[in-house]
Amino acid sequence: MADNTNDRIPTVVADGVDIVYRVNGTGAGRGSATAALNRIMRRKQTEKAAGVRRVHAVRDVSFVAYKGEAIGLIGTNGSGKSTLLKAVAGLLPVENGRIFTHGQPSLLGVNAALMNDLTGERNVHLGGLAMGMSREQVRDRYQEIVDFSGINEKGDFITLPMRTYSSGMAARLRFSIAAAKDHDVLLIDEALATGDRSFQKRSEERIRELRKHAGTVFLVSHNNKSIRDTCDRVLWLERGELLMDGPTEDVLKEYEAFTGDKSAKPKPKPKPKAAAKVPVPS
């Protein structure tokens, strides 16, 4: 079985991955003072008695991703897609199993490093440095980032504080900063839904370009069209379990039947928050 994979280079290997969230203060008393005291006093007791609830977000997921693949992650809300992505990025611990990666996978996103009180210009520098680019790289790419974002199309907005931007403008600048770096393994969490139609087209182009440089691209999206446009393989997660893993068309057909989405029309939020994160009795 391993023989037919010898010619392809794996970049991400997930081996029986379980991810469990522990949430404090959900037991009896709902975070009241007595419940908190109880928790502290009986530290050595089982998690359940201590009011810690376990949420089993991803169950026994295994897959191998290869260099040059673009993989879509689909599933209804709360099915564990973003959680799995964070674990691949090494930002969440796994309960069981292991995730092996080639190089450092990076989540596409710099929102948290940016500051609304600073100008767009300074945020480009800060965001670039936060992603691990050198000062020279940031300086070289600066114009490219600003042009791509299109922030200056309607005037000199890049020298204004980011709090003065419209939400669309801010989202475009964030995407432009995040997409400025080349990554070994790139993880994208629904970043394509930002901005107007022309910016979305530019973003999709940029993703394809990144894919050429990057080894592997993972894309989480509820937009089946953007999955079709960018991915050649799809993983379908439901309630934390890997339901299907295969070529985009095959998986999406089943998925659309499952969500009752008869036409191939993209539908941003296919399902209400179903009880996908079912807590496991511990």
Partner: peptide, 10 residues
């Protein structure tokens, strides 16, 4: 993973 020199994430 070991054969291709992949490292454990995180």
């Amino acid at each position: 993973a070991a054969r291709h020199g992949l490292s454990v994430s995180g």
